[in-house]
């Protein structure tokens, strides 16, 4: 009986009743280290497109020409907030959370290039890839309709009845060759390698 009275008294205290009806956990704040959408730091963008190249989400980032300078723009409906663009940018144009601090501390960066691969079983040697490639056309304007070329500087050319890739490092990753290949024999792969800089370089 005494305990019952004790409980009734305890629960009739105005302070207890007030707390019972107005209880609320503290409003949640986003932590400072949260990797939000990349924001511009104000540094100058050189238009190297490293961010667009490394972005894994389709249509998430675009480097736009605004008057006289380049500026990356992030699209929230597409961006997955992985932060790879922040890490890949050599100029530090973008920032998100503490990625820049961490990469600066660990002296890590990315090296990336494009790898071209032709499946000889699917390729029918039409030369569409060599002809459509914008880099090829710039290097050798006289590139023949069959994809043969006299120049040794082109990315790829038809040589002895098959596609030979000469200068993979000149590829800009536009994938025009992939689109123009009737058999989807040529594939452009994006290669990325994590690099640990030496102390002197950093």
């Amino acid at each position: 009986m005494r305990s019952f009275i004790y409980y009734v008294r305890e629960f009739l205290r105005p302070e207890w009743i007030r707390k019972f009806f107005s209880v609320k956990t503290a409003p949640l704040e986003t932590p400072t280290y949260f990797k939000d959408y990349p924001a511009l730091t104000g540094k100058e963008c050189t238009g190297c497109f490293s961010c667009m190249m490394i972005c894994p989400a389709p249509g998430a980032i675009a480097v736009l020409r605004k008057k006289d300078e380049w500026e990356p723009e992030v699209y929230p409906g597409h961006c997955i907030r992985c932060g790879l663009c922040v890490e890949a940018c050599p100029e530090g144009v973008l920032s998100s959370g503490r990625i820049l601090d961490l990469t600066g501390h660990d002296r890590t960066t990315f090296a990336s290039w494009y790898h071209l691969e032709v499946d000889d079983n699917l390729c029918m040697r039409c030369g569409n890839c060599c002809v459509s490639c914008p880099v090829n056309r710039q290097i050798d304007p006289q590139l023949a309709g069959t994809g043969t070329s006299a120049s040794d500087e082109v990315i790829m050319r038809i040589e002895g009845g098959r596609v030979r890739i000469l200068h993979e490092e000149k590829c800009t990753g536009c994938k025009t060759c992939e689109e123009n290949c009737p058999n989807r024999a040529i594939r452009v792969a994006r290669m990325v390698e994590g690099v640990h800089l030496e102390e002197a370089e950093a």
Partner: peptide
Amino acid sequence: GNCPISGCVYAR
């Protein structure tokens, strides 16, 4: 999420 807006990584 991104999927109902743009398809995210499935928009390929």
